[in-house]
Design a protein around this nucleic acid. Structure first.
Lengths: 192, 192
DNA sequence: TTGTATACGGAACCACCCCTCCGGTTGTCA
DNA sequence: TGACAACCGGAGGGGTGGTTCCGTATACAA
């Protein structure tokens, strides 16, 4: 079943608008945080609030849809690296990819690593998939003797989130400081 | 000048209420986040909102006062460790102290490590003091060959606070997972 | 082309929360 | 103890932002 075929396949304009909302909301929340009013999202998408609310019954639902998409694409990315030649490079490369992940911001990142219990089943499932995919990369890197064996996927996820937020809190323009923080965490993950 | 002698020394009941507000607000924000309404803080303190607002002209001002106090006590703690025999233990012990720091939560932590520019001079100064105090511990640990030399105090602070918030998001009851995450970050900070 | 289900827009509604204002109360000092 | 300044309480103003409602417009099938 294609992901577009939600329930009964929307009318063409409805589908277009739905995508537009997702796209705009994603960019806006990423850039300015969750505090941006719904009306503003609708305005930027060139739509009325009513339209937006037909697609996403709640602001929270909209946010969840975005996080869900982000999680899915991250899991996808992880799976793509599953068969790489160098397990260590694949693992750390994936971490770097998450950390550099443009268009994600604090609020999104928090939701990504959050407990997830407060969200629905779909969220739990997506989170599970991401953990499985990351777990595969992790297991290979551990088997190759690159990553310490006492870590679990969930912890890695939490760590990466922490790294990301730490980098974001640094005064801007300190590219090297950011790189250093990432390097510190990666070093901590390696076997000594 | 004693810290209680704010401007003109308050009347006894006023001073008492001021402390009560700080205490309650600290605990409440820590436990439930900044979203708790001012009215609720006042209620829990057994006071009217009017009283609260005479002491802190703004919700933000109240929050700043709390963060300021937290920063000062952390800097104090760091200074207390300044002359310890084992520089490495002093440094990592201080980090552990921050991470275990009960009664601090996401919002507070973010403010603690945030840019700080958006707050007043007092905030900047407190932050500066904390960085200096931590910097001293860091320098000694580096000189002792325990901590890698390419890190700066600001980076350590950002990393540790982010680690704290990430740990808080882990499913509850995973004490060992938390410990492991902290250990990983510390290992990353050590010289190899 | 025409009919109908589907979708759109945005004004209005409502709940929530920060903050102000002022009549009543209490601490303090002579 | 009396008098005054300092302080307290909490109702309500004002503004913001999420959500609903319904008259209008549009896609699509026959």
């Amino acid at each position: 079943m294609s992901p577009a075929a939600k329930k009964k396949s929307l009318r063409a304009d409805a589908e277009r608008n739905r995508q537009k909302v997702l796209e705009v909301a994603q960019a806006t929340f990423a850039a300015e945080g969750l505090a941006v009013p719904i009306d503003e999202i609708a305005r930027r998408a060139g739509l009325g609030v009513g339209t937006l609310y037909r697609h996403f019954p709640t602001k929270e639902a909209l946010f969840q849809a975005i996080v869900l998409g982000k999680m899915a694409s991250m899991a996808e990315e992880a799976r793509a690296q599953a068969g790489a030649k160098d397990p260590g490079a694949a693992f750390f490369g994936f971490l770097a990819h998450i950390v550099e992940g443009s268009s994600v911001k604090k609020d999104l990142m928090e939701a990504l690593s959050g407990a997830g219990d407060e969200f629905g089943r779909a969220m739990m499932r997506a989170k599970g998939e991401l953990r499985v995919a990351l777990g595969a990369l992790l297991a290979r890197a551990q088997a190759a003797g690159v990553v310490r064996r006492d870590v679990e996927a969930g912890e890695v996820l939490a760590l990466v989130t922490a790294t990301y937020t730490a980098m974001g809190r640094l005064p801007p323009g300190h590219g090297e400081a950011r790189a250093r923080i990432f390097a510190i965490v990666c070093d901590g993950l390696r076997v000594r």
